[in-house]
Nucleic acid binder design. Sequence first.
DNA 1: GTATTGACTTCAT
DNA 2: AATGAAGCCAATA
Length: 114
Amino acid sequence: MNFDRNKATRIWTTACRIPKGRVSSYGFIADLAGLPGRARMVGKVLHYAPEEMCVPWQRIVKSNGQIAFAAGSKSAQLQSSLLHDDGVIVFNNRVSLKRYFWKPDFAELMAMEY
DNA sequence: GTATTGACTTCAT
DNA sequence: AATGAAGCCAATA
């Protein structure tokens, strides 16, 4: 798998900023990582995220709050479980963005723009 | 080189 | 709320 390691690292580190108990979307993370329009790449890259980086991939969901995996699939169940550990309620394979969507504060946004 | 494929998003029904 | 089409872009084939 030869993907762009540099971009991948940006995505991983960006994902690591999502605090416990919050979620974000693929597109939003792509934007923060400086890669607008590459939501699909975020998903691909998260799949390759090394274990030792402890990337909280479970906190990334679709823009409508649904988990990206098919309901009932092994991955979806695992993600739901991990989110539950974070204190996030998962219902019908989705979470409430109203309650959990991560809004980075101003200082964090500034630290990112590069 | 073109075609297909996604852990996606948005808009229109 | 649910579907579907079109757009998206890097990776694969």
